[in-house]
C-alpha cells in the first residue's frame, strides 16, 4: 500500500515538475503576453477567472459537503436544452433581443427545481432517476432544437467553454453573482451549515429547510450558467467539485473550506490560462486538468503525511 502511494506520488511529482518546467519557460511568454496592450483579452480572462473562483469555491463547498455534485451535473447539462430552445425561438420568430443566456438560466432553474424537489424526504429514492432524466433529456432537447434551427451553430463553446471569449457583460454578471453569493452565505452561514449537516434536525428547530435548499440550488444553477462561459457545460461540474474537494483535505470548517477552495480554483484557472496560452491548447480542458492534477497531488501529499504521522 505504502509503495503504491509513494510510486503514485513520485509519478505525480515528476509530472508536476515537468509542468512547472514548461511553465517556467512559458511563464516568460505568458507574462510578456499579459503586459502586451494588444492582449487585453488575456487580462480580461484572468480577471474573470479570479471572480469566477469566488463562486466556484463557495458554491463548490456546498456541492461537496451536501454531496450534490451529480445534481449540479444534471443542472449544467440541461442548460443545453435552454440554449437550443432560445436559439430556435430567436431564429424562427426573429427575436433579436433574445439571448441564449436567458434560455440557459431558465433551463437551469427549472431543472434545479425538479431535481431539488426529489432531493430529500420521502422522495429521496427517486432523486437519482430525476437526475439522470434531467441530465439526458436536457441535452437531447438542446440538440433537437439546434437541428430544427436553420443555419449553423458551433456548440463547442457552450460544451467546453472559452474563457478567452468572455465579454465585459459576462464579467459584470459574474461579479454580481459573487456579491449575491457572498452576502447570502454571510447572512445564513450557520443555518445553511445546519441544514447541510442535519436537515431533519434543522427542520425540527423550525428552519425553513425546503426554502433554503431551493435557494441554495437556485444559486448553484445561476452559478453553473454563468460559469459555463469559462469551462463549458460538460466540465463545469469539475470546477464545482475539484477545488472544494481539494480544500476538504486540509480544513475542518466550512468557511476554511470555502477560502481554500477559492485559492485552489484561482491556481487552476491561472495555471490553465498560462499553460493553454503558451502551449496553444484549449483553455477549458487545461483548467480542468490543472484542477484534477492539483487534487490528486494534494491527496497524495496528505496521504503521505498521514502515513508518516502514523509511523
Amino acid at each position: 500500500m505504502i509503495t503504491v502511494v509513494i510510486t503514485l506520488a513520485t509519478a505525480i511529482t515528476t509530472h508536476f515538475q515537468t509542468i512547472s518546467k514548461i511553465n517556467n519557460i512559458s511563464n516568460m511568454i505568458f507574462l510578456n503576453a499579459l503586459t502586451d496592450p494588444n492582449n487585453l483579452f488575456l487580462r480580461h480572462a484572468l480577471l474573470v477567472g479570479l471572480f469566477a473562483s469566488i463562486a466556484f469555491g463557495i458554491i463548490g463547498t456546498y456541492v461537496i459537503s451536501r454531496r450534490i455534485s451529480y445534481l449540479a451535473g444534471a443542472v449544467s447539462h440541461s442548460v443545453l436544452g435552454g440554449i437550443g430552445g432560445v436559439l430556435w425561438l430567436k431564429t424562427i420568430f426573429q427575436l433579436e433581443w433574445l439571448d441564449p443566456l436567458y434560455g440557459a438560466l431558465l433551463a437551469a432553474l427549472i431543472s434545479a427545481f425538479i431535481v431539488g424537489h426529489f432531493g430529500h424526504g420521502a422522495e429521496k429514492k427517486r432523486e437519482e432517476i430525476m437526475i439522470g432524466a434531467t441530465w439526458a433529456i436536457g441535452m437531447a432537447l438542446g440538440v433537437i432544437f439546434m437541428d430544427l434551427t436553420p443555419g449553423y451553430f458551433d456548440i463547442t463553446s457552450y460544451l467546453f467553454g472559452d474563457i478567452l471569449l468572455v465579454s465585459s457583460r459576462d464579467l459584470i454578471l459574474i461579479v454580481a453573482l459573487d456579491i449575491v453569493i457572498v452576502l447570502f452565505v454571510l447572512r445564513f452561514y450557520h443555518k445553511l451549515m445546519a441544514i447541510c449537516f442535519d436537515e431533519e434536525f434543522a427542520r425540527l428547530r423550525g428552519l425553513k429547510v425546503d426554502l433554503f435548499y431551493q435557494l441554495l440550488l437556485g444559486l448553484t444553477a445561476v452559478s453553473v450558467v454563468l460559469l459555463i462561459r469559462i469551462v463549458g457545460i460538460v466540465m463545469v461540474i469539475a470546477m464545482l467539485t475539484l477545488p472544494a474537494a481539494t480544500a476538504s483535505l486540509y480544513t475542518r470548517t466550512l468557511s476554511g473550506m470555502m477560502l481554500l477552495a477559492i485559492l485552489f480554483s484561482v491556481i487552476a484557472i491561472i495555471g490553465g490560462i498560462g499553460v493553454s496560452y503558451s502551449a496553444n491548447l484549449s483553455t477549458g480542458p487545461i483548467i480542468i486538468v490543472c484542477a484534477g492534477v492539483l487534487y490528486f497531488f494534494m491527496a497524495a501529499l496528505k496521504k503521505m503525511s498521514n502515513q508518516r504521522n502514523n509511523g
Binding site: S65, Y189, H190, K191, A194, F197, L207, S248, R252, L254
Partner: peptide, 23 residues
C-alpha cells in the same frame, strides 16, 4: 462533514441564530 463540535451543539438553538445582519 467539516464542522466543529461547538457548531454541532449550537444547532440545538439554530432558530435563534439571527442576531445582526450576519446572523
Amino acid at each position: 462533514f467539516p464542522i466543529s463540535v461547538l457548531d454541532v451543539v449550537l444547532m440545538g438553538q439554530i432558530e435563534r441564530c439571527d442576531r445582526g445582519f450576519f446572523g
